[in-house]
Design a protein around this nucleic acid. Structure first.
Lengths: 324, 324
DNA sequence: ATGAAAGCGCTAACAC
DNA sequence: GTGTTAGCGCTTTCAT
């Protein structure tokens, strides 16, 4: 079922059929009707691959996430997907499973099949990212690379608020569980350090840990051994792991120890007690990144090259007064 | 940077360059070297879109999931992605957000851009699915449609085991929280009913509920009002919602009420107490489905049209002896 | 407003 | 083993 079949049936040229599907107003109303009818009867749909080749654009967007099973990634994907659809793009999703090589390979495989690429918290080298950006419009999240538009979720301040919050509750010995190196972890450490300095605290930094539940389970005993009364985790998964292990060891949260997470994923409200956590606006980040990408694709110049989103501490049940 | 540029530089015809990238053995070793060198210098990569058009296959697989943020979907996607990669396919992911129309639209949009389509727990009509299967090789999971290969995760038996387990613990009043209509829910209900019949129990069936945490939170009070001592939930998210609400109302689990989930997603081990749940082999299902799809694409006939995977009750901390 | 013709970049017979 | 020739299905000048 090709465009020629429809053309033949409607008694017009393929070019006219093409026009009907691309610039309907450029063809006479009754011709258009005939073509549409013929297409309908033949159940014809323009072949997207052929169209991509001829138009030299695909109508697809690509996104590479570190881990598809991670709910922070999921929130971003969801937002991007919706935004993509609004702009009539389909979305290609690839996951790197936190492996740098896979990330690069996925990105390179996607690049020629999409009109734009979104790389979330990429770990590839600056050079690699710059190179990709030559190939195809790129937007990154939580990563700074020269000349590559970026969406940054700043949480240094909010992480600082978490420290203030703990300090106000009487905590003086605080641990931070570092996540994988990168922009997010740096933000968190920076915010933590500066607040601690201000308040005269000396945080214990442990890690880095993989940003997973199991890391938190393992970290829990280290935290206890460190003799702190409060712990700030790189993300909610790690924090949830802490909670579980603490429950197993019958260490009461927040009575005996307070726990703060980061991201405010769905998990934060699913655990007991509910997690006090730094809310990162993943959905907004996704929407913003998608819009920046689409703007870039359309060649609208003077578009924002950088967007910074603020975070906010959400206080729930996992933090309380320090034990006496 | 096209194939002709490389051909010119290597002093061969485009066809030879093409061969070097598709059937390297069909070209003389030194010619191959020359071509490879030229390609390298020009940083040439075959254009996948043009290749798709000429070959009439894309090298892509597509998957449509009900909800990308759902961890059961995530487990399947992950498995499919890995399997796809092993076979040198890229994976296109689309989510329907549980909306039937979106599901159909996503599937139809994907169909012409992929060599095969995987529909997980689809809700579209049989007719629609059959139609899609005409367009492109299709495999469905947890859905039965004539002539469409399927991977089924049978859990009726394991759900029955859950009932036996509860019965053995002394429970006589059991509630089931139904999920969205479909194969999975039917399986669960069937297993539950048959075990209850065998044991002389009369289960209270509530719902249907959306397969979400918030549904469980809401359902908790209904469960309590129903006066049962044990509840089996459609999935772990709902079960987790129950746990949270029970904790808020200071209803002890499992002392006062026992809870059983389904799926055995990561969440099951993250909540307190850990969930007793029916393990559904999502990873295996994903791998199997991907393999069936690839086999079907390759045209290997006589391949299995249907694969049934068994489930298993995993007993953890959320179930215990019935209160006296 | 419509058609003819020339590609988009690659592959696949078919020759040689 | 390599080149020539036709497309894959669509879009897009350029004529008319």
């Amino acid at each position: 079922m090709t465009i020629r079949d429809v053309a033949a049936r409607a008694g017009v040229s393929p070019a006219t059929v093409s026009r009907v599907f691309t610039q309907p107003d450029a063809v006479a109303p009754d011709t258009r009707r005939r073509v549409l009818d013929a297409a309908e009867e033949l159940r014809y749909r323009p072949h997207p691959v052929a169209r991509s080749l001829a138009r030299r654009r695909t109508g697809n967007l690509g996104i590479v996430v570190p881990d598809i099973a991670n709910s922070f990634s999921a929130m971003i994907i969801k937002a991007v997907q919706q935004e993509a659809r609004r702009a009539e793009y389909a979305l290609f999703v690839a996951a790197s499973e936190e492996v740098v090589d896979d990330e690069e390979r996925a990105a390179r495989a996607l690049a020629p099949q999409v009109d734009g690429l979104l790389l979330t918290s990429p770990h590839a080298s600056d050079a690699c990212l710059a190179e990709l950006a030559e190939l195809v419009p790129v937007v990154v999240t939580n990563r700074l690379v020269d000349d590559v538009p970026a969406v940054l979720t700043k949480c240094a301040e909010a992480t600082g608020h978490a420290v203030e919050h703990l300090h106000a509750l009487g905590h003086r010995d605080i641990a931070y569980l570092a996540g994988p190196d990168g922009y997010s972890n740096s933000q968190r450490i920076a915010g933590l350090r500066s607040a601690c300095d201000r308040l005269g605290l000396r945080p214990v930094v442990l890690g880095p840990f993989a940003a997973r539940f199991s890391s938190g389970v393992r970290a829990a005993d280290l935290v206890l051994a460190a003799g702190v009364t409060a712990v700030v985790a790189f993300n909610d998964d790690i924090a949830a792991g802490l909670l579980t292990r603490f429950a197993d060891r019958e260490v009461r949260v927040p009575d005996r120890i307070s726990v703060v997470g980061h991201d405010d994923t769905a998990l934060a409200e699913m655990v007991t007690p509910r997690l006090t956590t730094v809310h990162i606006p993943a959905g907004v980040a996704g929407v913003t990144a998608a819009q920046m990408l689409i703007t870039q694709i359309r060649g609208d110049n003077g578009s924002a090259r950088r967007s910074e989103l603020a975070s906010e501490l959400v206080v729930r049940g996992s933090t309380g007064p320090a034990p006496i």
